[in-house]
Design a protein around this nucleic acid. Structure first.
Length: 144
DNA sequence: GCCAACGTTGGC
DNA sequence: GCCAACGTTGGC
């Protein structure tokens, strides 16, 4: 069981855009960072992850799930770059912003706080459940 | 809009 | 294989 966090600038690709893709979801292309790629390689079908808006908003706005395992990034000219597909699963009733995450001692170890530049990050089970609760999701969608 | 932090590139 | 230079990200 694993949980993740996907970052996107809403100007480039927003949570609403992901929702509009429906069941099919969206290839999470464009990632050119080895740590982020390795995280995607480790993902399994049905794994859940937060969808975070960077730059503008700076808050967790939704929960997505992996709909296709890592495969070559169709936008890359180099086969080393791979990505998964994700689709929207649930809205966040009460989005939590970066200030609130930073202010919470239970979330101080999040990669979002410690390495804000990593675009695809792991989230611990504890962080996932705790954040969901703060956000008004008492019975959050679980990874398989 | 600025700038710090980070990751990647490329020269040696 | 090291490391300086550069480009990019993202918070502020």
């Amino acid at each position: 069981m694993a949980y993740w966090l996907f970052k996107s600038e809403p100007d480039a690709f927003s949570w609403d855009q992901l929702k509009s893709k429906g069941e099919k979801g969206q290839e999470w292309d464009g990632v050119r960072n080895y740590a982020a790629r390795n995280n995607m390689r480790a993902m399994k079908i049905g794994d859940k992850g937060f969808f975070y808006h960077s730059n503008e908003g700076r808050e967790i706005v939704g929960i997505a799930e992996v709909s296709a395992l890592a495969h070559p990034d169709s936008t890359a000219d180099n086969p080393t770059w791979e990505c998964v597909d994700i689709r929207a699963v649930a809205d966040i009733p009460k989005p939590i912003d970066l200030d609130a995450i930073k202010a919470d001692p239970r979330l101080a170890e999040m990669i979002l706080v410690k390495n804000s530049r990593l675009s695809v990050q792991p989230v611990t089970d504890e962080e996932y459940i705790y954040i969901c609760k703060l956000c008004g999701l008492d019975d959050p969608p679980r990874s398989p």
